[in-house]
Nucleic acid binder design. Structure first.
Lengths: 194, 194, 194, 194
DNA sequence: CGCTAATCGAGACGGTACGTCTTGTCTTTTG
DNA sequence: CAAAAGACAAGACGTACCGTCTCGATTAGCG
C-alpha cells in the first residue's frame, strides 16, 4: 500500500522538463533506447520523481502525446466528405512521419505488451476513430455515402491502409497516396454493372 | 572481426529444438518475457549456440515464422476473387489469433526498432502482399475488378483494415467481419449514380 | 570514464554480508570456484553492489584479510626475541592452516597474475615483514642478534621456510617445527670454531 | 569410461610441437592467458590431440618442465658446501627469473588448486630438495655442518627465503643476495658466546 | 512568518538479462 | 581412419537498466 503523492505540491516545472526530455530522447535515440534513467538525467530530475507520477516511460510519453493532441485542431467539415477525409488523413500522415511519429510508434509497440499503456493508447485511437465516424455519419445523412454502408467498417477502411503502410511497410508514402486510396475506396473495386 | 561458423557442421537437432522452444516460450510467457537465456535452457542448449547462428531472439522467431509459412498453403484461385479473398483473409485472421499470432505480433513490434529484424519481417509481409496482388491481377484481367483500379492500393485496402483491427484495436473480430469489409470495399462508399 | 560511487552512502550491512559470504564460500568451495555471482547470491546482494565497490573477487577477499589483520594482536615483546618469534611464527602458521589460510592462499595465487591484487597482497606481506624486522631491530640493539646481521635477510630467513613448507610442500607442519627452525637459524649451520 | 589411446601410435612430432607451443605461449602471454585452444592453434594441432594425452594445460607445461630438468646439470660437489650451495641457488634463481620461471610460477599457482597438478609439481620440488639434502649430508659428514643440525630443516632454510622473495615479494634480487643469505645462515643469528 | 511535512535531486540497492568468453567434450570433414 | 577443425553444453564474466529505497536540502502550505 503505497501512499499516493499530493498533486498540489507537484513541481510543474519538473513535469514539463520530464515530458520534454522524454520526447527529445525518444526522437534522438529511439523509443527502446529511451530509459527512465536517461529521461531523469536529461531532465535534471531524480528517477523517483518520474516514478512518483508515472508508472512507466510509456505513461510519460503517452501524456506527451495527449498534450500534443489537445493542442491540435479537430476534423473540419467543409461539406465535402472526400475533401475533409483527404485533409484529415494527410494531417495524420504528417504526424506519423514527424518526430512525434517515433513516439507514437513506440507507444503502439508498448501497447502490444503493456495493458496499462494499451488502454491509454486505445483511448487516443478510439477518439480519432470516433471523430472520423462522426464525420462519415454526417456525410451519410447528406447522401455522400450510401445508406447501407456500415460506418464502423468504413472508418477502418480509411485508417487501416494508412497505418498498414506506416507500421508494416515503413515506406514514406507520397502525400497524394491517401487521396488515391480514398478515391478507390469511394468508387469500390467492382466494375459498375453495365 | 568475428569468424563466422561453418553451416555444414551445424546441428540440425539443436536448431529445431531452439525454434520450438522459442515459439513455445513466446506463446506461454509472451514475446517480451521470452529471453535468449530462457530459450537456451528450455531447448537444452548453450546460449552461445543460439548466438552463433542468430543475432537475437527476434531472428530465431522470424525463422520460426518463415518455416511456418513455408509449410502453409498458397492463395487459392477458385475463379471468384471475392470468395478467394474471403478465404485468404480469414486464414490470415485465424493465424493472427492463433499461437503464432503472439509471435508475429512480437516480431512486428521488434521490427519497429531493430533494423535487422525489420528487413526480415518486411520480406514476409511483402511476399504476402505480392501473392495478394497477383490474385487481384488475375481478377482484373477477368473483369472482376475495374481496369482502372491501382492494385497496390487495392491490396493495402484489403490487408490494412485487418491489421488495423488486430494491432491497434486488439479486438477479436467475428469471422464474417472480413467478408463484410470486402463486400463494402468492392461496392465502394459512394452511392451509385442513379 | 566511470563515475565512482559516494562512499558516504555505502550500506555497511551489505559490505559486511559480502565479506562474510565471500570468506565462507572460499572456505567451502575453494578460491577458484568462488564466483562473484555466488558471493552476491549468498550475501543476498546484487552483483552490481559488489562491482560498485570492488574490482574483483580478489579485492573483496583482500579486504576480508585486511579486516582480519586489523583485528589481530601485534607482535609481542617479552624481552626474549626467540620466544617472541616462536609465538609470532606459530600464530602465522595457525592462520595459514585455518580457514583464512585458504583465502590467503587464493590471494597469493591471484597476486601472481593480477597486478592490482598483487599490490594489495604485497602491502599486507610487507607490513608483516616490517613488524618482524622491527622486533629484530630491538633484539639487535639488545645484543640478542649479532650486530653485523642484515635484518632484511634475517626476516626472510624466518618467514621464507614457513611459506615454503606451506605453499610448496603442502604439509601440515607440527607446531614445534618453527621453534626448531628458529633455533637452527639462531645457532647457524656452521660448526662453532673451536 | 573413456578409452585410453594407444601410446605406440602417438605422434612424437606433435608432442614436441605442443610442448614448445605451450612454453612459448606461456612466456609471451602469461600462464593464465595460455589456453589449450591457443596451444593447439599455435602447435597446428587439434584440441583433442592435447586432451587425448594430457588432462590439462598444467600437465603439458609440467611435462615441459620435467624435460627441462632432465636436461639440466646436477648439484656439483667441489668439496666446499658453501660454494656449491651458492652455485646451486644462483642457478635456481636464474631459472626462476628466466622464461621458464613464468611457467614454473604458473605451475606452482595451479598446484594450489589442482590436485593432479600438485602431485606432479611436488615431485619436482621434492627431487630438488632431496638433491640439496644429499649434498648437505655429505657436508655434515665432512664436518662442514654441525652434527646436530636437522638437514630437513636446513634445506628448507636454504630454499625458503629464495622462493619467499620470488613468489611473495616479486622483487628481482641481486645475484649475490643468495650468497649473503647463505653466509648469514651458516653463521647463525645469535652472537657467539664470548 | 515560521513550522513542518512532502517533494525534490541524487544515487545506492537487490535483481534480471544481456552478449561475450572460456572450458572440456563431441562431431564432422579432410588429408 | 586418424587427426584437424570446430560446434557444442555449460556457466561465469562485467554491464546496463529496472523499479524500490534512503538520504539531506529545498519548498510549499498550514497555523
Amino acid at each position: 500500500m503505497t501512499r499516493q503523492p499530493d498533486p498540489r505540491r507537484r513541481n510543474e516545472q519538473s513535469r514539463r522538463a520530464i515530458l520534454q526530455a522524454a520526447a527529445e530522447l525518444c526522437v534522438q535515440v529511439g523509443f527502446a533506447a529511451t530509459t527512465v534513467e536517461g529521461i531523469a538525467a536529461r531532465a535534471g530530475v531524480g528517477k523517483q520523481t518520474i516514478y512518483r507520477w508515472w508508472p512507466s516511460k510509456a505513461a510519460v510519453l503517452l501524456e506527451y502525446m495527449q498534450d500534443l493532441r489537445a493542442a491540435t485542431a479537430d476534423f473540419l467539415d467543409t461539406g465535402d466528405v472526400l475533401t475533409d477525409l483527404v485533409a484529415q488523413t494527410t494531417a495524420v500522415q504528417r504526424l506519423l512521419t514527424s518526430d512525434a511519429g517515433a513516439i507514437w510508434r513506440g507507444l503502439l509497440v508498448t501497447a502490444q505488451t503493456d495493458d496499462a499503456a494499451a488502454s491509454g493508447v486505445r483511448e487516443l485511437i478510439e477518439r480519432a476513430i470516433d471523430d472520423g465516424r462522426a464525420r462519415l455519419a454526417t456525410a451519410q445523412r447528406d447522401g455522400q455515402i450510401r445508406a447501407d454502408v456500415d460506418l464502423d467498417i468504413a472508418v477502418e477502411l480509411i485508417f487501416g491502409p494508412l497505418y498498414h503502410a506506416w507500421l508494416l511497410r515503413a515506406r514514406t508514402l507520397p502525400e497524394q497516396h491517401m487521396a488515391e486510396v480514398l478515391r478507390t475506396l469511394f468508387a469500390g473495386l467492382a466494375p459498375t454493372p453495365a
